[in-house]
Lab assay of single mutants.
Amino acid sequence: NITNLCPFDEVFNATRFASVYAWNRKRISNCVADYSVLYNLAPFFTFKCYGVSPTKLNDLCFTNVYADSFVIRGDEVRQIAPGQTGNIADYNYKLPDDFTGCVIAWNSNKLDSKVSGNYNYLYRLFRKSNLKPFERDISTEIYQAGNKPCNGVAGFNCYFPLRSYSFRPTYGVGHQPYRVVVLSFELLHAPATVCGPKKST
């Protein structure tokens, strides 16, 4: 009989979030998941669920729940959905087409922007091929755009693959930082360890 609440607040209220290319994953298990708490945590810009209804979450049980978190800019949030393409979905964080879970995003301009520009958040701009779903690539190998090998040196047709967002508070919403948490629900042929409040007794 599990009584402890799932530590969603640790994920959502973390002081620092990860850069999207090096997104963070927390496995959540053996706890009571009260998803209604999430609705009250922040004024969400996005709370979209796929393959599951957000209002039914509190009635369900899962084997595992994974919470992935990272920062992107406002106009990239739409890429965090099944079947999307674009720089983020292709080279940084890719959801599977049959994704079961929820994408939660909110504006973090007050936390993640600086007047002089916050350069701490990076994204991958160049990659030889698209990522597979939930693949994480943290390599910093020089990207070869031409025929000549780069031998690890940046220059003509040889690019450092990561680029930094420079978040400034005066930017338009599309270029402001957004914190994203992706909850993916895993149903294996194994005992369910993460249940809503109704199912945990």
Rank of each mutant, 00 (worst) to 15 (best):
N1P: 10
I2M: 13
I2P: 10
T3V: 07
T3D: 08
N4W: 07
L5K: 14
L5I: 11
P7F: 07
F8P: 03
F8W: 09
F8C: 03
F8H: 02
F8N: 02
D9V: 10
D9S: 11
F12V: 07
F12H: 01
N13W: 00
N13R: 04
A14F: 03
A14K: 09
T15Y: 04
R16Q: 13
R16H: 14
F17C: 02
F17V: 05
S19I: 01
S19A: 06
V20I: 04
V20Q: 04
Y21Q: 05
Y21I: 03
Y21T: 05
W23L: 02
W23C: 03
N24R: 15
R25I: 01
R25T: 02
R25K: 04
K26Y: 06
R27E: 10
I28F: 15
S29E: 10
S29K: 09
N30C: 06
N30E: 07
C31Y: 04
V32Q: 10
V32M: 09
V32E: 08
A33Y: 15
A33E: 05
Y35F: 15
Y35H: 06
Y35W: 15
S36D: 10
S36Q: 10
V37I: 12
V37Q: 13
L38F: 11
Y39D: 10
Y39T: 14
L41Q: 12
L41V: 11
L41H: 15
P43V: 05
F44W: 14
F44T: 14
T46Y: 15
T46D: 11
T46F: 09
F47N: 02
F47I: 14
F47P: 01
K48H: 06
C49E: 00
C49W: 03
C49M: 00
G51L: 01
V52I: 14
V52H: 04
P54Q: 13
P54D: 09
T55W: 10
T55V: 11
K56H: 11
K56Q: 13
L57D: 06
N58Q: 13
N58L: 06
N58T: 09
N58Y: 07
D59I: 04
T63L: 07
V65L: 13
V65I: 15
Y66W: 11
A67M: 11
D68H: 03
D68S: 02
D68Q: 01
S69V: 03
S69H: 01
S69R: 01
F70A: 01
V71Q: 01
I72A: 03
I72L: 09
R73E: 07
R73H: 03
G74Y: 03
E76A: 02
E76F: 01
E76K: 02
E76Y: 01
E76M: 05
E76L: 01
V77T: 05
V77M: 05
V77Q: 03
R78F: 08
R78G: 12
Q79I: 00
Q79L: 01
I80F: 02
I80N: 03
P82K: 02
P82H: 01
P82M: 00
P82L: 00
G83Y: 09
G83Q: 09
Q84L: 04
Q84W: 05
T85M: 07
I88L: 03
I88A: 04
I88P: 02
I88K: 02
I88D: 02
A89M: 01
A89V: 04
A89Y: 00
D90S: 08
D90I: 00
N92L: 03
N92Q: 03
N92H: 02
N92Y: 03
N92G: 03
Y93P: 01
Y93E: 01
K94R: 08
K94N: 05
K94Y: 00
L95A: 00
L95F: 00
P96C: 00
P96V: 00
D97C: 06
D97E: 11
D98T: 09
D98C: 05
T100G: 00
T100P: 00
T100M: 14
G101Y: 00
C102N: 00
C102D: 00
V103W: 00
A105H: 07
W106P: 01
W106Y: 07
N107L: 02
N107I: 04
N109Q: 11
K110S: 12
K110G: 12
K110P: 08
L111D: 12
L111M: 13
L111T: 14
S113R: 05
K114Q: 15
V115L: 14
G117S: 11
G117Y: 05
G117D: 12
N118H: 11
N118V: 06
Y119D: 15
Y119S: 15
Y119V: 14
Y119N: 15
N120A: 12
L122D: 09
Y123H: 12
R124D: 06
L125D: 13
F126K: 12
F126Y: 15
F126T: 11
K128P: 12
K128Y: 08
S129I: 09
S129W: 08
N130C: 10
N130M: 11
K132P: 05
P133Q: 05
F134V: 04
F134Q: 08
F134L: 07
E135D: 07
E135F: 02
E135L: 03
D137S: 02
D137H: 01
D137G: 03
S139I: 03
T140M: 10
I142Y: 09
I142C: 07
Q144N: 10
Q144V: 06
A145L: 09
G146A: 08
G146W: 04
N147G: 12
K148V: 13
P149H: 10
P149G: 10
C150K: 05
C150D: 05
C150N: 05
N151P: 07
G152E: 10
V153R: 14
V153C: 09
V153W: 07
A154S: 13
A154H: 10
G155S: 11
G155D: 10
G155T: 10
F156V: 15
F156K: 15
N157D: 14
N157Y: 07
C158H: 04
F160D: 11
P161I: 02
P161N: 03
L162W: 01
L162M: 06
L162E: 05
R163E: 11
R163N: 09
R163G: 09
S164Y: 09
Y165W: 02
Y165M: 05
Y165A: 05
S166W: 07
F167I: 05
R168A: 12
R168M: 12
T170P: 08
T170S: 14
Y171C: 13
V173T: 13
G174L: 13
G174R: 12
G174A: 14
H175Q: 14
H175T: 10
H175N: 15
Q176P: 03
Q176A: 07
Q176K: 03
Q176L: 02
Q176I: 02
P177G: 02
V180Q: 00
V181R: 00
V181E: 00
S184Y: 10
S184L: 07
F185W: 07
E186T: 09
L187E: 09
L188F: 10
H189P: 12
H189G: 15
A190L: 11
P191Y: 07
A192C: 11
A192T: 12
A192I: 11
T193M: 11
T193F: 09
T193N: 13
T193L: 10
V194S: 11
V194K: 10
C195Y: 07
C195L: 08
G196C: 09
G196Y: 09
P197C: 15
P197V: 15
K198E: 12
K198A: 14
K199P: 12
K199I: 13
S200W: 13
S200G: 14
